[in-house]
Design a protein around this nucleic acid. Structure first.
Length: 593
RNA sequence: GGUCCAGUAGCUCAGUGGAUUAGAGCAACGGCCUUCUAAGCCGUAGGUCCCAGGUUCGAGUCCUGGCUGGAUCACCA
């Protein structure tokens, strides 16, 4: 419709003032809520053609548009703004068209292929709230792109090797006593994470001792015996030492079991896993070849670097002096592998904003290596989740653990249901199912409604809300609609799934239709800036509109069958869009609550 | 110090092609359940949109400078 109006305005300016204007000059916006109208045209830019006051120009244009477009019912003018109100026939046909759509996904002639990498955990510590934001964002972005008609490959790159893993392995060797997650009765990732903490504690106390003996801080960090041992272990690992490899595989499998449980709870899955341990060698070879080609250079100590000064950056390390690889080494290899295997149009890395520099460097190195697709590497850089006392630090144990948080949400959801006297007539498993959806809905919505690039604050003492602009509010709206539809069938109301042209519409109904009309626009825009928050806020607005409508007017008590049919169709479409939108956020709707 | 990001109500956040009187939720206060689910609805109160300039008929939005907070510039990942 938007475009139809723009075209008509262009014609109008030509007919009225004889000027052929650029369509960029024509601004058609959605009319503000408190003003009558559906679309607003800003007429200020046209006054230079009309040589008239804005009000008079708007009047000319209003008359012209009303005569040209039958969809326009009426118009009004406020200052330099021409507000158009569409006819009720227009809205009803819009609703009927929407109802006939098989899918709310955008239909694209030429879908693109996106690879979305997210989660990418280290196998030395359990997941925390920051990872939750990452996982939810990655998952939701993938769904958002799919809803836009694209093909999406969701991948997870497991950082399963490196000095950090050796730290927990070493601690296990020293203090593990052959315990396992099973004998201890705790989740595998937690079990391994504990040993990582044990290492860090021992490391810290060794540094402290050395400093007391007169070493300076840097020296102490480098010469502490335990870090030396870990470095040796990393070399042994790279050399394929069997005992080390065995331990490594055992501990990693514990971690994967633990992560699997958390992913499962969050409703997240991947199409493909990449393991750093399998790609780092390819990366190393590529670097060595790069030296021969003169792309990279070796320093006297044997370490390998790339010089990015001509790109405005610094030198960057690619291989350590002892020949072991760093993070970026395998990222280079993985990117190349992915392009060869899937030739995606874009690889989106969902990684925290602290790694901006890293991905800038990655892309530039690929460019230097001669890969023309270097600009397909896209970093979706999201903000940290902070606690009231500041950033979360896993080494200091100042984190909100992912599993604990999910468990807390479940308890809260259960208490809320009890308090409100809900779900009492259901059996345990039904109750659990619904509570689970509500708890996760609250958590997911809380995280995803915030613009990804913003640093967000989480206050654990003020637990996540279930009222207001929240997931449960939207789920509740949907549950109410379900209830109306159930009652309709109990009352033997025959629903014919079509609205009649002759239905008279309430103002509130038009407001809802206006929102429904914008849904595809919202999906497209949200995808273009990779912000699921837009979807969340849209669903909230729509839910609010519906609740106001619901409170003020009765659907099922309506005597006029035409109106009743219209209302049923309207709320069914609201439900459909809410489900679709929340689905993009990875939030499932309970049938009732 | 360089680069990047952010600063909107007491708190958490919308406002993303400049446009009509800057919006929600939470917290506070006051109303609405014999009427389709009150996890809801209505109302009251709450603002120097960090500051100063500039562009514009018009700036929370664009530009410049500054202030504050965060990230980053590692043989960490």
């Amino acid at each position: 419709m938007n475009f139809t109006i723009v075209k008509a305005v262009k014609e109008g300016i030509r007919a009225l003032y004889g000027e052929d204007i650029n369509i960029e000059e024509i601004q058609v916006q959605n009319t503000r809520k408190d003003i009558d109208g559906d679309f607003t045209i800003v007429v200020f830019p046209f006054t230079k053609y009309s040589k008239k006051k804005p009000e008079d120009t708007a009047k000319d244009l209003g008359i012209f548009l009303r005569n040209t477009l039958e969809e326009i019912g009426s118009y009004n003018i406020i200052k330099g703004f021409l507000n158009l109100s569409m006819s009720s026939e227009y809205w009803i046909s819009l609703l009927n068209k929407l109802a006939m759509l098989k899918s709310l996904d955008i239909n694209l002639e030429r879908p693109k292929t996106f690879m979305v990498e997210y989660s990418s955990p280290n196998t030395n510590k359990p997941l925390h709230l920051g990872h939750i934001r990452n996982n939810l964002l990655g998952n939701s972005i993938s769904k958002l792109l799919k809803a836009n008609g694209h093909k999406v490959i969701q991948v997870n790159l497991i950082n399963d090797r490196g000095i950090h893993i050796c730290k927990s392995m070493l601690a296990y060797q020293k203090w593990g006593n052959e315990e396992t997650p099973a004998t201890k009765g705790i989740k595998g990732d937690k079990f391994v994470g504990n040993f990582y903490v044990k290492f860090e504690n021992e490391y810290k106390s060794q540094i402290k001792n050395l400093v007391e003996q007169g070493f300076d801080e840097e020296d102490a960090k480098n010469t502490a015996p335990i870090i030396k041992e870990a470095q040796v272990m990393l070399q042994d690992w790279e050399n394929g030492d069997e005992r080390i490899r065995e331990l490594w595989e055992k501990m990693n499998s514990w971690v994967y079991n633990g992560f699997g449980e958390t992913y499962n709870n969050l409703g997240i899955s991947f199409d493909k896993y990449y393991y750093e341990s399998k790609t780092y060698k390819i990366g190393k070879d590529l670097i060595l070849k790069g030296i021969e080609k003169g792309i990279f250079f070796r320093k006297p100590d044997g370490s390998v670097w790339v010089d990015l000064k001509d790109e405005g950056l610094d030198e960057k390390l690619l291989l350590r002096a002892d020949g072991t690889t760093v993070y970026i080494t395998q990222d280079i290899a993985t990117a190349i592998q992915r392009v060869e295997e899937f030739s995606p149009d874009s690889i989106i890395y969902v990684v925290g904003n602290e790694q901006r520099y890293h991905f800038q460097v990655l892309s530039l190195i690929l460019k230097k290596m001669g890969y023309k697709w270097y600009d397909k590497v896209m970093h979706l850089s999201y903000g940290m989740v902070e606690l009231p006392e500041g950033k979360m630090k896993s080494r200091e144990g100042k984190v909100v653990d992912a599993d604990d948080l999910i468990a807390d949400m479940l308890t809260t959801a259960e208490n809320m249901a009890k308090e409100n006297g809900k779900l009492e007539d259901l059996n345990e498993s039904e109750k659990l199912h619904i509570i689970n959806r509500i708890a996760l809905g609250a958590l997911k919505y809380f995280i995803l409604k915030v613009d990804p690039k913003r640093t967000m604050l989480f206050n654990p003492t003020e637990s996540i809300d279930f009222n207001g602009n929240t997931g449960p509010f939207i789920q509740y709206t949907n549950a109410r609609i379900n209830s109306v539809l159930r009652n309709a069938s109990k009352l033997n109301i025959k629903f014919n799934g079509k609205a009649s042209d002759e239905t008279r519409l309430l103002k509130k109904e038009v407001e809802i239709l206006r929102l429904l009309q914008r849904y595809d626009e919202i999906i497209i825009e949200a995808a273009s800036i990779l912000d699921p928050g837009m979807i969340a806020n849209y669903c909230y607005d729509l839910s609010r509109e519906f609740n106001q409508y619901y409170q003020e007017y009765s659907i099922l008590k309506e005597k006029d069958n035409k109106i009743l049919q219209f209302r049923l169709l309207l709320i069914l479409q609201v439900k459909r869009i809410l489900e679709h939108g929340m689905g993009i956020l990875g939030i499932e709707m309970p049938e009732r609550m």
